[in-house]
């Protein structure tokens, strides 16, 4: 098929629907007069388009534009309602704004207090302890400010002082000896 046939065939639908100018129409008529192949295609398209479409009835044609208009009207009304609910109904908007303001203020207050207060795990000193919170002194022990035991205050026949003066190795040896003694039944 050459380009002349292609051009003609591409214009056949327009020719069939009466959309061509006089010169284009005459060109097609002259071509299909002598070209069997293009004439067959034109005949096929004529057969195709000559089959009618059943009419759904006057009621359908009358109802459809009305339905579309109603749809459009409802849609417009709905859109207006949404716009109104945002712009013209101040009560819900004011309530939402108040709630938001409360949340923001609360968060700000918490954030403001946090840097000044000591963390729960912060170290403390004996100076920070309120004496009122401390119970009565243990009987027999000195009531020093630093709450340290004073070895001098212990009984004279006590071996605490000797044990306290032992080094780590000496202590280990002592524990080992005591353990052996215990195992052998003393």
């Amino acid at each position: 098929m050459n380009s002349g046939h292609d051009d003609i065939r591409e214009l056949l639908p327009e020719y069939l629907n009466g959309l061509l100018s006089g010169s284009a129409r005459r060109r097609i008529e002259a071509h299909i007069e002598k070209c069997r192949d293009c004439r067959d295609e034109f005949s096929l398209l004529s057969d195709l388009t000559s089959t009618g479409v059943p009419d759904p009835g006057e009621d359908f044609w009358k109802a459809l534009p009305h339905k579309a208009t109603m749809r459009s009207r409802n849609r417009r009304r709905r859109d207006r309602f949404h716009l109104k609910s945002l712009l013209l109904r101040p009560l819900p908007a004011a309530a939402a704004a108040a709630a938001l303001l409360f949340i923001v203020s609360f968060a700000y207050m918490i954030a403001k207090e946090s840097p000044g207060s000591p963390p729960a795990t912060a170290p403390t000193t004996t100076a920070a302890i309120d004496p009122g919170d401390v119970g009565p002194p243990i009987a027999g022990l000195p009531a020093g400010d630093d709450l340290e035991f004073e070895l001098a205050a212990l009984p004279k026949d006590s071996y605490y002082e000797e044990i306290a003066s032992l080094s780590a190795e000496e202590l280990d040896s002592l524990y080992e000896a005591l353990e052996n003694e215990e195992l052998k039944g003393g």
């Binding site: 759904p56 459809l64 534009p65 009305h66 579309a68 208009t69 459009s72 009207r73 417009r76």
Partner: peptide
């Protein structure tokens, strides 16, 4: 909204 009615009347047969 009347414009919609006219548009539908104009094209309903083609679309159908």
């Amino acid at each position: 909204d009347g414009a919609v009615e006219e548009l539908v009347e104009k094209y309903q047969k083609h679309i159908y």
